[in-house]
Design a protein around this nucleic acid. Structure first.
Lengths: 134, 134
DNA sequence: CGGAATCCTCGAGGATACTG
DNA sequence: CAGTATCCTCGAGGATTCCG
């Protein structure tokens, strides 16, 4: 999205440019309504490299889906939370989850099947507050 | 999905494996509740090459999102329509469209903005029958 | 018309190492 | 802890040609 040419024929195309790719939807999903640190996200996405996570977070921030808050401490601390745009995405991703669980149950880890459908919260993120400052 | 390793950590991952990539969601969206011929889809997706369209259609068929019906006529005629899984995706994609229109209106062709939100039908495919032979 | 076959590009994504 | 900096792989996607 932010680095591409933006000539979309269809809104679906624009949406997938924002959250397509291997990681972006997953990152948004894992942050959820909570606040997540870099290492939290990385722990939830074991296969992502620091490099990729950094790139995707930057891209999500440029697209206005997440907010990055950096605390100048030692050791450094950076927190990510969703903007309103990002949060509005959560119910959609949630529906997509239900869809995948319905039609591809055999490819979904078992602990997701027994989860109450319709409730975000894929990883260890919790549904506490998210005082984002956008 | 069909050709990959299927070890998903999260349903979102599985869903995006089905409809991720540059074309698949677009194809599903363009077929909609209608029936579309190969050339119809291609006309709606000007940038897709025959090769890619063929590959993506095959992948969608293997994932159970579309049904291919071949008529042994001269000239040949092949029709594609969505399965229930594919149709269940339409409202989700539709919501995604609304989301994109809401947050990225400047990147969406103007004729989508004025469209009544919540109604599928992205391209020239119509929601009635589709026995048009272009 | 609706593809298949072949070959190729190119950039998303990855591995590894290092740093403020 | 939270990243950068380099370099590299690899396969999704593309161009072109040909076929039933």
């Amino acid at each position: 999205m932010n680095t591409k040419n933006h000539s979309y024929q269809c809104p679906v195309e624009a949406a997938f440019d924002c959250i397509g790719g291997r990681w972006k939807a997953l990152i948004v999903w894992h942050i959820g309504y909570s606040v997540a640190r870099y290492s939290d996200i990385k722990a939830n996405l074991p296969k992502v490299t620091p490099h990729m996570l950094s790139l995707q977070l930057k891209s999500l921030e440029e697209d206005g889906l997440i907010v990055r808050t950096q605390y100048e401490e030692i050791p450094p601390r950076v927190e990510y939370c969703l903007t309103q745009a990002g949060m509005d995405l959560l119910p959609i991703l949630d529906t997509l989850c239900d869809w995948a669980i319905l039609y591809y149950p055999e490819h979904i880890p078992a602990d997701f099947i027994k989860r109450t459908p319709g409730k975000p919260g894929c990883g260890t993120v919790c549904t506490s507050d998210a005082t984002n400052s956008s």
